[in-house]
């Protein structure tokens, strides 16, 4: 069965280290798919491959029925794959609102609009609803470089959403967030329209179980198990892997 995103036999080597070794991953339309595994399992590397910033030595990636292996990050974002990075990446000298506007430009704001941020008000109109969802309204006019870590992460999520994604790649979105911020994030992800599929890398298993309908477990660059959250929770193999991986 083919899905929205279909990665097959993906392998990435760094020198003698196999970061990914023949991984298959399929994300269906509207699916909430979690990717878990111990440190160094290859989760971020897999997101890099799917997002186009790392070229795998082997394997294919198809999105919406097309081979996108030759597209870079920009081309994939234009087709609807948006991501946030494990270390929040924002435009430090631009205001929070401008950050969202820049992220929205390629897919959302028609070319004729030359002045999206020419005036503060226009930018805030565009970015306002998203910033509000992320609880960033008060800092809309603050340069992103001045924001606290958690706020920067939330800003990057707002930016990813601003691109109107069909597939959202989230690399540890809850890391570094306060309890309140995590609550808001969970709410936001649960409220996402079903037209958006999510691939979530997250270490906090409570969030994984709350947010996902499918879980894939990676370890040492290989798929260890895949299934529903319940299956994964009770799998002795997975418990064993985690015990080894974190000890």
């Amino acid at each position: 069965m083919t899905g929205l995103l279909d990665a097959q036999e993906v392998s990435v080597r760094y020198g003698s280290l196999a970061a990914l070794d023949g991984v298959d991953l399929c994300v269906h339309d509207g699916q909430r798919h979690a990717l878990i595994g111990p440190n160094g399992a290859g989760k971020s590397t897999l997101l890099d491959v799917l997002g186009g910033s790392t070229r795998p030595q082997r394997g294919t990636v198809r999105f919406a029925g097309r081979d996108i292996g030759r597209l870079g990050p920009a081309g994939r974002a234009r087709r609807g794959i948006n991501r946030i990075h494990q270390r929040p990446a924002v435009f430090a000298t631009l205001t929070a609102a401008e950050n969202v506007v820049v992220a929205a430009l390629p897919r959302v704001i028609p070319r004729r609009r030359w002045w999206p941020a020419g005036r503060r008000r226009a930018a805030q109109q565009l970015a306002g609803p998203l910033l509000e969802q992320m609880g960033l309204t008060a800092v809309a006019a603050v340069p992103a470089g001045h924001l606290a870590h958690g706020q920067r992460r939330q800003l990057e999520i707002a930016m990813a959403l601003a691109g109107r994604p069909r597939l959202l790649l989230l690399d540890e979105p809850a890391a570094g967030l306060s309890a309140v911020e995590v609550g808001r994030l969970v709410e936001l992800l649960q409220a996402l329209p079903r037209a958006v599929a999510v691939l979530l890398v997250e270490h906090r298993l409570d969030l994984v179980y709350a947010l996902s309908d499918t879980v894939t477990v990676l370890r040492d660059g290989r798929t260890l198990a895949a299934g529903t959250p319940d299956e994964i929770r009770t799998s002795p193999l997975v418990r064993q892997a985690y015990a080894d991986g974190v000890a």
Binding site: S53, A77, A89, F91, A92, T93, V102
Partner: peptide, 17 residues
């Protein structure tokens, strides 16, 4: 705006399309 954004973080700019 996009030029300034690119100076800040090219990777992010690409990831936004």
């Amino acid at each position: 705006l996009v030029l300034r954004a690119g100076r800040d973080d090219e990777t992010r700019l690409r990831a936004s399309g």
